[in-house]
Design a binder for these strands. Sequence first.
DNA 1: CACCGGCCATGACAAATGTCAGGAGAGGAC
DNA 2: GTCCTCTCCTGACATTTGTCATGGCCGGTG
Lengths: 203, 203
Amino acid sequence: MSRVRVLLADDEHLIRGALAALLGLEDDLEVVAEAASGPEALAMARAHRPDVAVLDLEMPGADGVTVATKLRAELPSCRTMIVTSHGRPGHLKRALSAGVRGFVPKTVSAQRLAEIIRSVHAGNRYVDPELAADAISAGDSPLTVREAEVLGFAADGAPVAEIAERAALSQGTVRNYLSSAAAKLGAENRHTAVRLARERGWV
Amino acid sequence: MSRVRVLLADDEHLIRGALAALLGLEDDLEVVAEAASGPEALAMARAHRPDVAVLDLEMPGADGVTVATKLRAELPSCRTMIVTSHGRPGHLKRALSAGVRGFVPKTVSAQRLAEIIRSVHAGNRYVDPELAADAISAGDSPLTVREAEVLGFAADGAPVAEIAERAALSQGTVRNYLSSAAAKLGAENRHTAVRLARERGWV
DNA sequence: CACCGGCCATGACAAATGTCAGGAGAGGAC
DNA sequence: GTCCTCTCCTGACATTTGTCATGGCCGGTG
């Protein structure tokens, strides 16, 4: 029986290395490649064609979901899964619609992760129950595409003029969008709106 | 020769477990206790009296620096070190003044971490060069105590009225403090000021 | 003591932001 | 075709901020 070929992508060397060592102990798993950034993960995947790609959500260059999306197009045979410390509901949704088949927080044990990798490789899907519950209770984003976009530009505290420029919209329009977005989120100003949207993973 | 007794505290089971396994392979190190939260780390330290405590910076209950401070008082023989993913300059400063003897990002390898643990146990201090450079170039916080406090209350996007209430100050005073803080940080409004102060670990 | 800096406040003005009403075009649903 | 929603805009208004000048009260330094 051939072993499951795994790609490991995480910018924290400590975790990646440790994980590689632990997963390597399982005799049906084999870590064939490691990467510390999004682009590197893609390159490694192309070179080594793993069966399962275990991707960290927050990485320099490109986040896990972006990598997963590209992998799905380039290497359809490769199953992808996301591992993350901060499980925002929106991220989970985004990940699932990108074709990700596993979504786990870093609070699970290596043993458990190994099991999940096997399960994903077998064609199953796995989502951490806790995160799933959060996602369901948080519901869908009530924001329209533009509202979310404008809110994203407002995320770093930029003034309206700058947001308008970046979004190529008039200042009035920007203010209207921000206002309606804040209203939908129950926030009293755009800054708390940004915070709320962030927490739910809607930006 | 007796082995170095290590306490490992990190809320991410994946990392903690993997790390425990890897460090356990070194024949002069021995992981005698693990914890997933600040309070638990303290309890474990009291029970097992480790030589070195390796603490994650962001943990539920109490952060790594807080735990280190308490450990220093309760268990002076125990050296403490901090491991973190986000190395904000301010955190480093806070950690050092709490008596922490090692400060490393999670991007180092387990091998390297083992060496550093040994070095710290031997009485040396170790700070990641990259983080040290950041801390030096970032310099000290230019903010006065009140400015930092008010900026902290402003962190979640609350309006001035609310900040004033929480800080028990007049609205005018709050605006003055926010204004001067933003000026010192080179920000054009308090929200970007909050972001900058956060990045530098000054809030 | 005189001086300076941090702390707290007031008042007033300018600028940024939030809110509302209203309208036009584009596209999907029925 | 009609209805609806999203998109984008304008203009006007109220409110919230940011900024500045000014002053009083401390505590420490020279």
